[in-house]
Simulated assay, not measured.
Amino acid sequence: MQAFTATVNATEYPPQLKHKVIFQTFQELKPSEAMLLINDHDPVPLRFQFESMYKDQFDWEYIEQGPDLFRVKIGKLSL
């Protein structure tokens, strides 16, 4: 079992708040910490945003890939 510093269940937030909460949670992570993102669809557009905003500062690992539930480990890399 992996340990996560924070968990964001995106299904619990209205659409206009989802990305705000996810990015705020990521920003609060210390280097080498990770968060768990839970979503009801593949968060590929979110990954593109991470690549644009945090290039070379995160890692992305699918723990579960659907079809109804997606769980992604998003880690903050040490620089």
Results as ranks from 00 to 15, higher is better:
57 Q>D: 03
23 F>V: 14
7 T>S: 06
10 A>N: 04
27 Q>W: 01
13 Y>K: 11
55 K>C: 07
47 R>C: 10
30 K>T: 04
9 N>S: 02
73 K>Y: 06
37 L>E: 00
10 A>F: 01
45 P>V: 09
35 M>A: 01
56 D>M: 10
64 E>P: 00
39 N>A: 12
69 L>F: 01
72 V>Q: 06
31 P>F: 12
58 F>H: 09
73 K>N: 05
21 V>N: 01
7 T>H: 06
5 T>Y: 11
33 E>L: 09
3 A>I: 10
36 L>W: 06
77 L>C: 10
36 L>D: 04
17 L>V: 03
59 D>R: 13
29 L>N: 07
53 M>A: 15
50 F>M: 15
17 L>S: 11
44 V>Q: 10
27 Q>P: 00
32 S>T: 15
67 P>T: 06
47 R>F: 12
61 E>N: 12
7 T>R: 14
19 H>N: 14
73 K>D: 03
32 S>D: 14
30 K>A: 15
69 L>R: 14
76 K>H: 09
40 D>Q: 03
35 M>K: 05
20 K>Q: 12
47 R>P: 00
16 Q>N: 04
31 P>Y: 10
56 D>W: 00
58 F>G: 01
36 L>V: 05
45 P>W: 07
64 E>D: 02
17 L>Q: 13
13 Y>F: 15
8 V>I: 15
51 E>F: 03
46 L>Q: 06
77 L>F: 06
10 A>D: 01
78 S>H: 08
39 N>E: 12
20 K>S: 10
24 Q>Y: 07
27 Q>H: 05
71 R>C: 10
25 T>V: 07
49 Q>I: 11
61 E>W: 04
40 D>W: 05
18 K>A: 09
52 S>P: 00
36 L>S: 06
73 K>W: 07
72 V>A: 01
22 I>Q: 08
22 I>R: 00
31 P>E: 09
12 E>P: 00
38 I>Q: 09
76 K>V: 06
57 Q>Y: 04
33 E>I: 08
30 K>C: 08
10 A>G: 07
15 P>L: 15
30 K>R: 14
18 K>C: 03
72 V>T: 02
18 K>N: 02
54 Y>H: 11
47 R>A: 02
71 R>W: 03
2 Q>I: 05
33 E>K: 09
11 T>M: 06
18 K>V: 14
46 L>P: 07
29 L>E: 03
44 V>F: 05
42 D>I: 11
39 N>K: 04
4 F>L: 11
26 F>A: 07
12 E>W: 00
10 A>M: 13
32 S>F: 10
19 H>A: 13
21 V>H: 08
34 A>G: 07
13 Y>M: 10
65 Q>Y: 02
59 D>Q: 09
9 N>W: 02
68 D>W: 05
73 K>C: 12
13 Y>N: 06
41 H>S: 14
75 G>P: 05
17 L>G: 00
33 E>D: 13
77 L>G: 04
56 D>R: 08
76 K>D: 01
49 Q>V: 11
62 Y>K: 10
6 A>K: 14
23 F>W: 01
11 T>R: 12
23 F>K: 13
56 D>G: 03
28 E>V: 02
73 K>G: 00
2 Q>L: 08
55 K>P: 01
41 H>Y: 14
77 L>T: 08
43 P>H: 09
28 E>C: 06
29 L>I: 03
24 Q>M: 04
48 F>T: 07
20 K>F: 14
42 D>A: 13
47 R>H: 13
5 T>G: 04
31 P>H: 12
24 Q>D: 09
